[in-house]
Design a protein around this nucleic acid. Structure first.
Lengths: 197, 197
DNA sequence: CAGACTCTCTACCAATTGGTAGAGAGGTCT
DNA sequence: AGACCTCTCTACCAATTGGTAGAGAGTCTG
């Protein structure tokens, strides 16, 4: 199965947008990187913004696929959540551009509110529904699924950011070490912050 | 003490670069926001890049000042570190643009390697020296100060990112709640990740 | 008052940007 | 062969960008 030109563009765009950023990556630069002209890109996509949105779509599809695969393995409750979180982390570690993309998406004005709703919401909805179902089935302690989702999401982004910082500082990023260190430091930080406001 | 035009420019630039990003914020946009022409900005700064670097300088000065103030209060060891970390967090919470600025700086190619060395290194050096001194004095458990510094740094960035995500999702960001939730989730994540690679 | 200095402006420029128009090459179907 | 379709190209454009040149207004200094 040969990789189509369109796929190659999406690949390169994910890498570029995730590391350099959407705004600073011109169509020309993207095309150069692929050895084609930018007009070829504009043949496959109506605009630069459309490339961005297609990249997000593809990433969302990947996430949903990973989610579903993990969810279809018959685990329940915490085991299920564990498996999914681990899988998402594996995705983030294997594809560090994904984190950059997330940051790019959350940047104000990068995506119109309705596109955000159309593209991101389904992923979040799926996750929220899953958590709700598991709670209803008694597999998870009952709490506000919205808050739990937010917690999971921000934690994933936070941990992934730490990994990226480590990478940026020239240290080999290790998920295991990060999580262990985080636990240690979090206990300390809690003590540090508790007495104050 | 009236705020000089230069200060107003730096203020607006910090806000704009931290939230929207450096690349997407044109000098025209920055000037419009201040009710002046971009040539006025270029009177105070030789180039757009220089504005960016001045913003970073100012932020670094703020950080160093906060650091020194906290360090001069006569605390030792963990109490000292606690006070400093708490202070840095207060800065990050009061000025959320600071986090965006950090992300902007760590973006590849945003700052030349030597400018990075000139501007960021002093802050890190100061922190590393401080940790080393405290270890030598027996106030902190002896470990690799480089690693401890990295841990503290990435944790601060990670927590700050979580706060920002919460803000982006329309929830009031609370440092207390984030830290508490993080501890809970970290324990869970550790369990989730421990058995795997 | 004369001159210098500080500051903000108008006018302009070269380069880059995202995007359009349309030609041409190659293959496929009738 | 001829019409059609897919794809990539050359050529071009309008808008925006960072940056320069220099005039003009205000203030301070002699």
């Amino acid at each position: 199965m040969a990789e189509t030109t369109r796929d190659r563009i999406l690949d390169a765009a994910l890498r570029a947008y995730g590391t350099e950023g959407f705004a600073v990556t011109s169509l020309d630069a993207l095309a150069d990187q692929l050895g084609i002209r930018k007009q070829t890109i504009l043949y496959y996509f109506p605009s630069k913004q459309a490339v961005f949105e297609a990249v997000i779509d593809a990433a969302a599809v990947d996430l949903v696929k990973a989610f579903d695969e993990e969810a279809s393995r018959g685990l329940v409750g915490l085991d299920q959540v564990e498996a999914i979180v681990r899988r998402v982390f594996r995705l983030a570690v294997a594809q560090p551009e994904l984190l950059g993309l997330i940051r790019e998406v959350t940047r104000p004005g990068s995506l119109s509110a309705d596109r955000l709703a159309t593209q991101i919401a389904p992923v979040l909805d799926r996750a929220r529904d899953f958590l709700q179902r598991e709670m209803d089935a008694g597999h998870l302690r009952r709490s506000d699924p919205e808050m739990l989702l937010l917690s999971l999401y921000s934690t994933v982004v936070g941990v992934a950011t730490e990994l990226e910082v480590q990478r940026a500082m020239g240290l080999p990023p290790t998920l295991r070490g990060t999580v262990a260190r985080r636990q240690e430091l979090t206990r300390f930080l809690r003590a540090a912050l508790e007495p104050a406001d």
